[in-house]
Lab assay of single mutants.
Amino acid sequence: SEFSSRSGYGEYVQQTLQPGMRVRMLDDYEEISAGDEGEFRQSNNGIPPVQVFWQSTGRTYWVHWHMLEILGP
Rank of each mutant, 00 (worst) to 15 (best):
L68W: 02
A34H: 01
Q18M: 09
P48W: 02
T16Y: 06
G10L: 03
S56E: 06
Y9R: 08
S7W: 04
S5A: 11
Q42K: 14
M25H: 00
V23I: 07
W54T: 01
R59G: 09
Y12M: 07
P73K: 11
E30R: 09
L26N: 15
F3A: 07
W54V: 04
S7C: 09
S56I: 01
G8C: 13
S7T: 10
N44T: 15
P48K: 04
Q55C: 05
P48G: 06
G8T: 10
F3R: 10
R6I: 15
P73Y: 10
G46Q: 14
G8Y: 14
A34C: 11
G38T: 00
F53N: 05
P49M: 01
L71M: 14
Y12L: 12
G46S: 14
F40E: 10
E31P: 01
E39I: 11
S56G: 10
G8F: 10
Y12D: 04
W65Q: 03
S7Q: 13
P49L: 08
G20N: 04
E30H: 11
N45K: 09
G46H: 12
R22V: 10
P73A: 11
R41Q: 13
E37F: 09
D36Y: 00
S43L: 00
Y12G: 08
G72F: 14
R22S: 05
Q42A: 08
H66A: 12
D36H: 01
S56D: 01
Q55V: 13
R6W: 15
A34S: 09
F40V: 13
V13K: 03
V13I: 13
G8W: 08
W62Q: 15
L68T: 05
G35C: 02
L26D: 10
S56P: 05
H66T: 02
E69I: 04
G8N: 15
R24A: 02
L17Q: 02
V52H: 04
S56M: 05
V23L: 05
S5V: 11
A34Y: 03
Y61H: 14
E11D: 07
G35R: 02
W62H: 15
P73V: 05
M21L: 01
Y9E: 15
M67Q: 12
P49R: 00
W62P: 15
T16F: 13
P19T: 09
D27V: 14
Q51R: 01
L68E: 01
E69H: 03
E69M: 04
W62F: 09
R6G: 08
S7F: 04
Q15G: 12
Q14N: 04
E39F: 10
Q15D: 09
S5Y: 12
N44Y: 01
